[in-house]
Design a protein around this nucleic acid. Structure first.
Lengths: 194, 194
DNA sequence: GGTAGACTATGACAATTGTTATAGAGCAGA
DNA sequence: TCTGCTCTATAACAATTGTCATAGTCTACC
């Protein structure tokens, strides 16, 4: 084993991220996340005393870090390779789940927070998006893209990938992935001066 | 008046679309849509005897047609103008709602349908996306874009806009809109041979 | 006036939700 | 063995959900 078997707490977080990516935030109940992780309901409130908000926030961050790790690694081979890997990662999640799973960060981004309250969940999602954009933008700049354009392109890439994931789920087809992949690839190649 | 005052049925559908765009599909209850439209709960099941699925499906189609109408009109001034209008339309919804509203079509696309069942809601969402893509692709082709590229670009645009809406909500900032707008504009200009 | 059909009002149903409380198990170290 | 701590088990709570049933009101047409 290269890794410890995950603790119950980690299983709950990862399971919650998966369930949110499939059913959305509000359709994901604490009872079911516990069952999904073979953990008792009581334990969930032991590990996450602030309740659902805390669990969901950690699930978002967990997905964000997991994806950022992959992105960081693949970007070492350049921005085009990084983009391809980023796309492939999400494509695999969508296709392997038979178009039932998507991105939990997107999922939590589209639910209104309670009035007045700037939900911690939404803040976590914004941080995740910013992290992904930062990684992409840095790589683009390192490979010759103009600084401001690099930021624009990074935002476009993240937005397009998130949107594509949702479109593929609705259409039950991976075709949108291939379309956006082609265009984004050409766009990056042109921006870094090939 | 240039228009009839909307019927109760229309008010319910439009209100449901708005609520879904804010809170997501599962957090939008039939009781609250009725209240929001000042219609009694009983009426909702009178107008939509198939229940929530029917109401939501109509809400998605309603948003799709409303947007397509605007898109069709603005595309008469060319694909760049159409893109700008498409972006401006969603930007206005997001900003005017203080980052609380988004796209209901996206919202319903990220909730898992019941096992085995290919939900009518998801099919409606896929149709809406396809319609928007078709309008954009046709316009691009008419203005000189290569046919296959036009389809790719149309998918990229819709995906990027949907993703950008979600990102703006998470960040509580309209900046992503401006970033993607700039890049998409340049991309289209290049594709139609300016 | 009267009758049919469209709409409303009201209440109930089983199920599920987030959360809290309380008591118990299991095991570490003194 | 006793103590303290982490974790589990179980039950309960008020609220909300989609849906259905039933009886009532209103309005248009004969």
């Amino acid at each position: 084993m290269t890794k410890d078997s995950p603790s119950a707490r980690e299983r709950i977080v990862a399971g919650a991220a998966d369930m949110i990516s499939r059913r959305g935030l509000n359709a994901t109940s604490i009872r079911e996340t516990a069952k999904h992780a073979s953990a008792p309901l009581g334990s969930t409130y032991h590990y996450f005393p602030e309740g659902k908000q805390q669990l969901v926030t950690e699930a978002v961050r967990h997905t964000g870090e997991w994806t950022a790790r992959s992105l960081r690694k693949e970007l070492q081979a350049g921005p085009v390779a990084g983009l391809q890997a980023f796309l492939a990662l999400w494509r695999k999640i969508v296709v392997d789940s038979d178009f039932r799973a998507g991105c939990p960060v997107l999922a939590v981004s589209i639910e209104e927070p309670a009035p007045g309250e700037t939900s911690a969940v939404l803040t976590a999602a914004a941080d995740v998006f910013a992290t992904w954009e930062g990684l992409l933008a840095d790589s683009l700049r390192e490979h010759g893209a103009e600084p401001e354009r690099a930021a624009n392109l990074a935002t476009l890439i993240v937005a397009a990938v998130e949107g594509t994931v949702a479109m593929c789920r609705a259409k039950r087809s991976a075709e949108p992935f291939d379309r956006t992949a082609e265009e984004l690839r050409a766009l990056i190649l042109a921006a870094v001066g090939d």
